[in-house]
Amino acid sequence: MSDKPAVACSGLSCVFMGGVSALQDVSFRLPAGGLTAIIGPSGCGKTTLLRIAAGLERATSGSIQFLREDGSTQPLRAGRLTVCFQEARLLPWRTVIDNVALPLELAGVDRRQRRARADAVIQAAGLDGTQRRLPAQLSGGMRMRVALARTLVTNPAVLLLDEPCSSVDEFTRMQLDEEIRRVWQVSGATTLLVTHSVSEAVFLADSIIIMKRAQVHCTHVVSLAQGNRDRTTLEFSREVEQVMRALAHAAGVVTR
């Protein structure tokens, strides 16, 4: 799984106009092919971090780059990077298959090839039969699945997920989490998941970065094996509890 490069974030700071500091000297490393979650209260800078990684926002100082084994670095934008946002962000006038094929279309892949690839990705996502539907004809959860399928179509090296489950109900969220795990494992991409759900982070991530007011508060390594995570077990609840404690500490809430 580690044919994909690791990512290093070092000394990243971001000050918005008006002097609001969204990130202060944030450093961490995303292991090659791993899934790292960032969790923290609203306004802690986690989405800004992801947007800088995607090249949609500019850092005031510091960098977030690919890290090769020989220690050299390369800008993230130069490699294959995809983002799945909070909203599905599908073009409403395009069918599912044409939405999924869009990144390939923009990369100049010819029509037959990109449709074949998109079709394969859609089928693997369990969305067979929706190819010719329009986004408005799908449920919210289905639209997110299409958006996830679209991130897979270019075979990305880095996958950035910005609270992909925040707009769906708890039941759909559990199904989507399974799909996120599948997408991550199929692509083998070095993945960063921004979320505000502790159970989602524990369910999916190798390690969890807990943020507090524009800074990294601490990092929690999830001790459960990737293939063996069940929300209904006591071990899972214990893991959630540990992360909750760290979060409460970050938020300044007193715990027993």
Partner: peptide, 14 residues
Amino acid sequence: VDPGLREIFALAHA
């Protein structure tokens, strides 16, 4: 035009 959709195109360097 939805700025969110524009970002999809920006990510693809369109």
